[in-house]
Design a protein around this nucleic acid. Structure first.
Lengths: 195, 195
DNA sequence: GAGAACTCCAAACGATCGGTTGGAGAGACG
DNA sequence: CGTCTCTCCAACCGATCGTTTGGAGTTCTC
């Protein structure tokens, strides 16, 4: 059997993302993680120092590109609503992303790769001001934060959704997600319109 | 020294709320919890069965009355915005509440005391329809969910706020909370107006 | 007031935690 | 080929985990 250092590293990051997203930092055990990765747990210490080091690496790996590729297309409130819908779809494809964000906030004192992410957010906020003329910088940031909070919240405050949404509550979670997506797009559009 | 069963029980619930809010279910140890409560940890098993039982009891104790007392006063979008501000202030006084909500969503498969909370939410949603004429049932629920998500998100997705908000970012977290509160009230008002 | 019933705690339980060690095997270089 | 370095793993380490036990002290019942 040959070496595969890059592959081993990536398998640990992937398994870390799965495990940390599902169970959080405290809830994840090194045994389960290494079993998931198909790699001996000693490798974690060789590559990432310790458990916390892997956690930080996973967060930086996954959260760094959170807003990459998801840019507002076009102009006007409807474009902002559509962008929120895209963000929602992205979470739907990879729900781990949203949960990692939540664990980061709850279990860490400061954001992973904060500088890079802050720069991305500044870029998105200024772009938002181009899409919605007359929006000042502070309000653009708060709008951005609210959109991300609303969309992320569906995955990270899931029990809240269970409790609040009982009208037309089909047993199918997919239907609930569809309905929520539609409601969010409309609400974000309304937020964007109130400039 | 006399007995104080009600007091012991309450001390465990209070310490449980503090510990679980700060560190989550997996991150909380029975030793730290009993030390915090000033009670022997064996008492947890006598009163609540096991660690998970205490967790459920704490959630039911704190989350059951989450929306109690916070009712929309008056009519029209401005009233809804003011209500969101009140909810924000409540979290500000007891941030444990918001974090407990987040841990519940991340670490449990179903909501604690779901029936009672669902009933309260239905009540709040219908009340919302009285405050905002012309709002249908489904949209009222989604509005309710969005308001609670937005307000709760400030405390449960705190790292997100760190990254997104850099404009006029005074080092004082209190100032950031003030600014966020003002932005949220305005945004919720806009959401309520778009009916 | 004797004994049952209950509260509470110190100490200990096996299991599992994050982290380490020693060595077997695979490439690099001469 | 010999040797040195690096990857990888099985087995192990002390510490700590959630939970239980035995018993001392307190209130209730008759």
């Amino acid at each position: 059997m040959a070496w595969d250092t890059a592959g081993t590293r990536r398998r640990l990051l992937d398994a870390g993302a799965r495990q940390f997203a599902a169970r959080g930092f405290a809830g994840t055990t090194m045994d389960a993680l290494s079993r998931d990765a198909g790699v001996n747990k000693e490798r974690v210490y060789a590559y990432f120092g310790d458990k916390r080091g892997l956690f930080g690496a996973v967060l930086a790996d996954r959260l760094g590109g959170l807003l990459d590729g998801a840019q507002v297309e076009g102009t006007g409130p409807a474009a902002v609503g559509a962008w929120a819908g895209e963000l929602f779809d992205r979470y739907r494809r990879t729900p781990d992303l949203a949960r990692l964000l939540a664990w980061e906030s709850l279990e860490l004192d400061e954001a992973a790769s904060a500088d890079h992410r802050a720069a991305t957010c500044r870029d998105r906020a200024t772009h938002l001001r181009a899409v919605l003329p007359g929006l000042d910088a502070a309000r653009a940031q708060h709008l951005l934060l609210s959109v991300v909070t609303l969309v992320t919240g569906w995955w990270t405050l899931a029990r809240l959704g269970d409790v609040v949404l009982t009208a037309g509550a089909g047993a199918d979670p997919d239907d609930a997600a569809d309905a929520r997506r539609a409601a969010l797009v409309a609400q974000v559009e309304a937020l964007a319109r109130a400039t």
